[in-house]
Design a protein around this nucleic acid. Structure first.
Lengths: 113, 113
DNA sequence: TGCTATACTTACTTTTTGGTTAGAAATAAT
DNA sequence: ATTATTTCTAACCAAAAAGTAAGTATAGCA
């Protein structure tokens, strides 16, 4: 059928995928990607994905930042202002994510039926 | 930036993605995809992804079957013989999965660093 | 007689994930 | 003086996911 690339699905790949195959990461990435200027503040994100708790949004953003998919810019003002955006690394992932999202949209009936 | 397709990430998409964005589904799909003839038996799959318990492999296969991504063919013999393969629906998903897998391989250092 | 093979299931326990609520900290506006 | 704003964190608890170990069924083989 297709050639076997066994090493593909050994640990390294799974380790990478596990960093954003969770409940909220893809939604964060997609939100940033589709925002007007590519930048969103915490509360703005939270309004956009309001069924995510602050705790989980915060944790998800931290994880994405730790793995170099999202950048965090803090302004020394009161009240606090923090801006989130995609890193170049995150940007490079987005076409793949969009591929999945488009597929999911096209195949909703096949999968959920 | 990019045009906003808000409806994308509302429930339907997430519902579809959640069916295979879990710990084992992508690995099952990829295993079937990259097998010699597109068909694998239970124990064969289990050998291929041996850090997955039988319980989880069984549950994952059931879920994928329920969502029309994997087909299951039972032979009425003893000892039992069951063959798993991708459905056309599952096949259509694979280019997207491969996209992710390739990205993960290329960006391992960026993400895991 | 007992062992092997296959494809699971069941019961039980542990680990991980995620939700809820409250609150901190500092300033500006009322 | 009080309230609003923003970006979180901490403590606590519930639910979901996943691991472990054992068992089931049937036929063929030694």
């Amino acid at each position: 059928m297709k050639e076997m690339k066994e090493e593909y699905m050994l640990c390294p790949i799974r380790r990478v995928l596990s960093e954003f195959c969770d409940k909220w990461s893809l939604l964060v990435l997609y939100s940033l990607y589709s925002s007007d200027n590519g930048v969103m503040r915490f509360t703005e994100l939270h309004r956009f994905m309001s069924d995510c708790s602050q705790k989980m949004l915060s944790a998800t953003l931290k994880k994405l930042e730790r793995h170099n998919l999202v950048a965090r810019k803090v302004y020394a003002v009161v009240p606090p202002k923090v801006e989130y955006s995609l890193t170049p690394n995150g940007e490079s992932l987005m076409p793949k994510v969009i591929g999945l999202v488009d597929w999911a949209q096209d195949h909703f009936d096949d999968v959920v039926a």
